[in-house]
């Protein structure tokens, strides 16, 4: 992952908290002193029940906030993989919710990271925090997000109407991070080689 800029497209079903996940990453970058931007898909695109957003975290001021070729795609459901897989930069990363997306022959020029986000969220007792699991997982790879700082900041970012969910959101964020750490996914070689074999 480039140390200077991270361009991420995040996608999933409406209701999976995709826009909030993007916002968390943007907040994390901002709080770490980086330049950030966040653009949602809006309008008729949303009616089909899918949502996506684009996040950039950068050491330098962001010229175009639009991303044609992302460094990373975070996919929470199958249609998102189908839609955005082809756009990932060669050598980029596809991080996907393996609870809802089965293994398949992806491109072999990208790094694959599977996170059973929905299962982890279920274990924690609320399927809806799968997005925070992904945020934590991404934080482990990111060079521009300060994980410890985010752990501190996260409770403030939960909207007042959902305060009772602050704790479980934080737990999900930590579990996502730990999952990547334990799997020693660093740079995704682990899954990458598994996939080479199928």
């Amino acid at each position: 992952m480039s140390a200077e800029v991270e361009r991420i497209i995040l996608a999933g079903f409406g209701g999976q908290g995709i826009l909030f996940l993007g916002k968390i990453l943007a907040e994390a970058g901002m709080r770490n002193g980086k330049h950030v931007s966040w653009i949602p898909s809006y309008g008729p695109e949303m009616r089909g029940g899918t949502a996506n957003c684009t996040v950039i975290i950068s050491e330098h001021p962001i010229a175009s906030p639009l991303v044609t070729v992302p460094d990373t795609v975070i996919a929470m459901n199958r249609p998102s993989v189908a839609k955005f897989n082809v756009r990932i930069k060669a050598g980029g990363m596809l991080m996907y919710n393996s609870s809802l997306i089965e293994r398949q022959e992806f491109r072999d020029d990208i790094r694959l990271v599977e996170i059973p986000a929905s299962e982890i969220a279920d274990e924690l007792g609320n399927a809806r925090v799968a997005n925070l699991v992904m945020a934590g997982a991404y934080a482990k790879f990111s060079k521009l997000i300060d994980y410890e700082g985010m752990v501190k900041a996260l409770p403030q970012l939960i909207p007042a109407s959902k305060k009772e969910l602050a704790e479980i959101n934080l737990a999900a964020f930590e579990r996502g991070y730990q999952y990547v750490k334990e799997k020693k996914y660093m740079f995704g070689r682990y899954v990458y080689s598994v996939f080479k074999g199928i």
Binding site: K23, Y42, I62
Partner: peptide, 10 residues
């Protein structure tokens, strides 16, 4: 335009 209106930045 719609992008600037919908976009978040610091």
């Amino acid at each position: 335009d719609g992008i600037l209106g919908q976009m978040m930045e610091p």
